[in-house]
Amino acid sequence: MIRRTSKAWLYLLPALLFLGFFMVYPLFDVFVYSVEEGYNSASQTYFGTGLYNYSYVLHDPYFLQAVKNTFIIVIITVPLSTAFALAISLALSSVKKLKELYQTVFFLPYVTNTLAVGLVFMILFKKTAYTDGMVNLLIQLFGGKSVDFIDGPYWAKMFVMCFYTIWVVMPFKILILTSALASVNQDYYNAARVDATPKWRIFTRITLPMISPMIFYLIITGFIGAFKAYSDEVALFGTDLNAAGMNTIVGYVYDMLYGNSGGYPSYASAAAVLLFAIVLTITCINLLVSGRNVRT
């Protein structure tokens, strides 16, 4: 038994080492960092312990802006992308011809470098001295007024942001929902057809309840993912997100850690812990709600 036990630990050793160094230890360390006041990364010294870092972060206008941006992105993109993905999956499941082709096309954004495509989105939406940009020309075509979506007013930037986020997260949701729809037992639909049940009723009484676990899974992971939004913002607005007023909480953490505004691991840790607290709270609420609504 002892020999077997030691052999098992030997198999586990590499994983344990890596996880210990790069997950477990940092996990405790980040809380330590977040309460060390005036930490200096060059000399690795600090004045004392306390909650000053949290208070600094919570009073930092950049952080508050980042929290506001993140919440707007979460509240807009998660419901919209989930509903839209559901609509597309339903449409996909009710057509036969070209279904594979559509599925392949819809999956494309998942395997592409989001930074590269973000750059294209920026080009499409940006207004420069040379050109108003594709999107603005379209707006003008329909009689609207052009607006700079990348350096312009806040709502315009937020619109591009949300639009791009939805574009990026759609493939995964479509993939999950199409397979969920395909796995619903056809007998239910046949029974409903014998009873001449109206389409809408079939949807709300059969389809939706049957795939609700997957929908809730997508909503929960969607919330978590949207709260961690960062690299899509960089792709659209550049690395100086504070100047663009489009920073997110994760962006704030990285800015505090590194770059021109960096060198404050304590503030970064405090912000990261706050982010973790927010995500944990939202996830718990989500789980409670879904536990009440999903019948499995």
Binding site: M23, V30, F276
Partner: peptide
């Protein structure tokens, strides 16, 4: 314990990893 690590967002550990 392994499973509970799945809930930890990478943003939380990236600061220390950077320092390490």
């Amino acid at each position: 314990l392994f499973l509970s690590l799945m809930m930890i967002p990478s943003e939380l550990v990236v600061i220390t990893n950077f320092q390490t």
